[in-house]
Amino acid sequence: MLRLEALHLTQGDYTLTADLSIESGARVAVIGPSGAGKSTLLDLIAGFQMPDSGRVLWNGQDLAPIPPGARPVSLIFQDNNLFPHLTVAQNVGLGLRPDLKLDAAAKKAVLRSLERVGLAGLGGRKPAQLSGGQRGRVALARVLLRARPLLLLDEPFAALGPALRSEMLMLVGDLAAETGATMLMVSHDPRDAAAMADQTITVFGGRVDPPRDTATLLSDPPPALRGYLG
């Protein structure tokens, strides 16, 4: 279970507060207007920012002393998910060892995860030689290989067209289901929440509300959300 315990972060005149729990294996969307603090919330969980007070707990363990790379977290960013100077296989392999010193078993695992996302045989290419959708799949192959229990996505695949994007999101859902990962996805689009997430967290003006059932939330939105949805 992911628990955000009385989290409090102030940056200039902006304050973010959160106090909530997310069940293991849940799929949660995080929606709200830009600048409300969605990405900051993800940064706090991933370890890129530290709260002024409060704790981030995973299964009861305080994550504060753990650097980003060692947290039980896999990340998909908006862009720059791949190193352009490394091959597809190297980019995926980084999920196993950050120094890329891979033994035979590890290399085999890289090939398997590439196969799983439908990129068999493309391991030797550079990201520039792939389509946008394929690049997204490479990032997912790495997520699969890292097998961390918490998957954070920050407005993923924003550069893809709508059809490709929903296809990628389906794949993300499948992979999360396979590995039993808890999924937290930031989006500004309520349709993503409806399609992907059984629960939704809203962030307005730095206030993070606990997750609610997506369907009920969207069918009967509170005033702030109603204003945002238009």
């Binding site: 890129f48 980003p68 060692a70 990340l75 720059n80 950050p98």
Partner: peptide, 10 residues
Amino acid sequence: YGRLADSLGM
């Protein structure tokens, strides 16, 4: 790429 590298523990 710094955050990506951080998130991978590089």
